[in-house]
Amino acid sequence: MHPQTFQAQAKAKSIAKAKAIVPDLPVRLGSTPATTFRGNPDIFGRLVEDHDMHRALFAMIEETEGKSPERKKLFRELVKEIKAHSAAEEQALWSTVMRNPKTTDDARHAVSEHKELDEMLADLAARDMASPTWMRRFKKAKDEYLHHVREEEQEQFLAAQKHLSTADVAYMKRVFIARKRDEKASVKIDKKIKLN
Rank of each mutant, 00 (worst) to 15 (best):
F157V: 04
E144S: 15
S186R: 15
E90R: 06
P132L: 05
R76E: 15
L124T: 02
K80W: 02
E155G: 00
V22I: 12
L25I: 02
S14T: 01
A125L: 04
T104V: 10
A8E: 13
D105C: 00
R99P: 00
W134R: 07
L78V: 03
R137K: 13
K162S: 10
V97G: 02
V149W: 04
R76F: 09
R46E: 14
A8K: 13
F138V: 00
T32G: 06
K140C: 00
P26V: 05
K180G: 05
E89Q: 05
K67Y: 07
K67L: 11
H147C: 07
D24C: 06
R108F: 00
I177W: 01
V169R: 09
R136A: 11
A122T: 03
R137N: 10
K173H: 00
R55F: 11
A10C: 05
W134I: 02
M129T: 07
M60N: 08
P3W: 08
A10F: 01
I189Q: 05
A12T: 07
I193C: 03
H109M: 11
K139N: 13
Q9L: 12
E113D: 13
A84M: 08
A130Q: 09
H54T: 15
K173R: 13
E119H: 08
K17W: 02
K184T: 13
I21A: 09
H109R: 14
P132F: 02
F138N: 05
L78I: 05
S14F: 02
D52L: 11
S31M: 10
M53V: 01
A160G: 13
D190K: 15
A18G: 08
I193T: 13
A126W: 02
S131R: 04
Q7N: 05
Q7F: 03
M1F: 08
Q161S: 13
I21K: 10
E183D: 10
E144D: 14
V27Y: 06
V111C: 03
E152C: 07
R127S: 14
